[in-house]
Amino acid sequence: MRVSELGHAGLRRRLSADGLLLATGPFVTRIRSRIPSVAEGINSLYPDCEVHNADSFYDFDCELRPPRSLRRFYRPQVVFLSDQRVVFKPLPRHQAYPMLEWGMNWCIASHVQNRLVLHAAALERNGRALILPAPPGSGKSTLCAALASHGWRLMTDESVLVALDTAEISGPARPISLKNASINVIRDFCSEANVNTPVHDTLKGTVAHMRPPRDAVERARQRAPPAWVVFPRFRPGADTRLIDRAPGEAFMGLVANAFNYAALGGRAFHAIGDLVDRTRAFDFTYSRLDEAMATFEALADGRQ
């Protein structure tokens, strides 16, 4: 069964009772919340995702609820719990949905130990994976959203999973996080993009999420061998430039963006080495999405 088949009332019932067991790629997350905006967000952004039965196994346990303090009566807040433990400081209640997305990212970054987890986006084209590692503010998600709307299969916007034995790439194919100016940039550039209602005044500014394309959700468990590692950087007014990055520099860039590198130790070191051995690495500077799309089209076609 998919989320869209539950109906809004059915979705709210599950979230309020034993929890919604939401499958995203290789993970199943149990989500519980009585907060209406959480149900609305899931209904809007995860319609194509499978729902598992309440008695099934799950990987992560998430709950969003008001904090148990008197403050909730005069300034409504929300807390995120993982395995019944509060993980983040409370946020204003209107940020409940983004908090769920951030909390689900945190679960992957904190708990996954059987794969290398990179802070990066990944997309697939012609059976080969493109990895975009980058710190916040680099234009990674904007680029990822545009590519996902122009012929590339979205694998993930945030958490790239690298198989430790084969360096194959996969991801949970969850919504793409857009911030501030990039929200309207993507609405204008991708006419079919489904972006939810923006939430203002968060720590990251105004945030919204783009629904993953249905094909990406249905194929979320399909791995792909890595072909390209591109470190993107958005600079207003900059010319589009794709420049080779030396393998050693690419290696260090991947280390800097690996969530569980320290925990995995030597296995992560060799997984990154295998990844670098199998890919070409580039630095990419851009300001115009149409030129960026043409650059990646050429890369996929072997013209770069």
């Binding site: 030396a246 393998p247 050693g248 520099e249 690419a250 290696f251 260090m252 280390v255 320290a262 130790g265 030597g266 070191f269 060799h270 080495g273 670098v276």
Partner: peptide, 22 residues
């Protein structure tokens, strides 16, 4: 110490300290 060649460079990882060196 773990060691790998990386193009013209090398990378080394000290698993005891958790440090990586180019």
């Amino acid at each position: 110490l773990h060691l790998r060649r990386c193009g013209d460079q090398w990378v080394a990882f000290h698993s005891g300290r958790g440090t990586t060196h180019l």
